[in-house]
Design a protein around this nucleic acid. Structure first.
Lengths: 105, 105
DNA sequence: GACTATATGTAGCTGGTCTACATATCAAGA
DNA sequence: TCTTGATATGTAGACCAGCTACATATAGTC
């Protein structure tokens, strides 16, 4: 699936990934690819702006690190981020119910 | 749920409603409210542009009718619309799988 | 020395959805 | 009769998420 199939769930997906542990953008892309069973392959132009958005919103805290010469911006989920993730999950479940009700089982 | 929770599924929801039988905008809003168990309450400013979009795309065919003095634009789903609905359903199922895989069961 | 993987990001665009507004008819009740 | 609410359709203007394509840099490998 490419990114235009995720329709507003991007933040929730990223926050869910960060909940498992802090990570940098490239690793998040790889983790989502892995945890989705190779179904998700998000372009960097989608993920990096999303991370800055999450940071600006206070849902993730980023810090620069250095790993074998490469600079990385590592993000950790905040308390607000955990709350946002919980809300995102609820919204998702509500959407799931509505879609099931309308589309059929 | 208001319309900002449906994230790109609007067309699929409308096409699914039209599949049950032709309908006009106001009736579609009411039908979605009913079939979702009162969870969905879409504003007209969301639904009417969506219908014109679907018509422009060839997924729905609209015609003016008159019912007790009120003019109505009644839409019927086309063959292309049925195909688009099938694809929308597949996309939805794929998204569901990805979200389940990442968020957990 | 060239190529691939790792790693981050910007520029410009498209398009869906929102809020608020505008319009008109019909039915019911004060 | 007048007002209100339900029915019914739509436009204007704006926002913002996600897209594609591009730009940049280092490390390791062949």
């Amino acid at each position: 699936m490419d990114a235009d199939g995720i329709h507003g769930q991007l933040d929730t997906l990223i926050l869910a990934t960060l909940k498992r542990g802090e990570a940098h953008g490239y690793a998040i892309i790889a983790a989502l690819k892995e945890s989705s069973g190779e179904q998700l392959d998000l372009p960097s132009g989608t993920v990096y702006p999303a991370l800055r958005r999450l940071e600006r919103a206070g849902y993730a805290a980023g810090k620069w690190t250095q790993a074998s010469g490469r600079r990385r911006r590592v993000y950790a989920i905040t308390d607000e981020g955990l709350a946002a993730l919980a809300k995102g999950r609820e919204d998702w479940l509500a959407l799931r119910e509505v879609m099931s009700a309308v589309l059929g089982p």
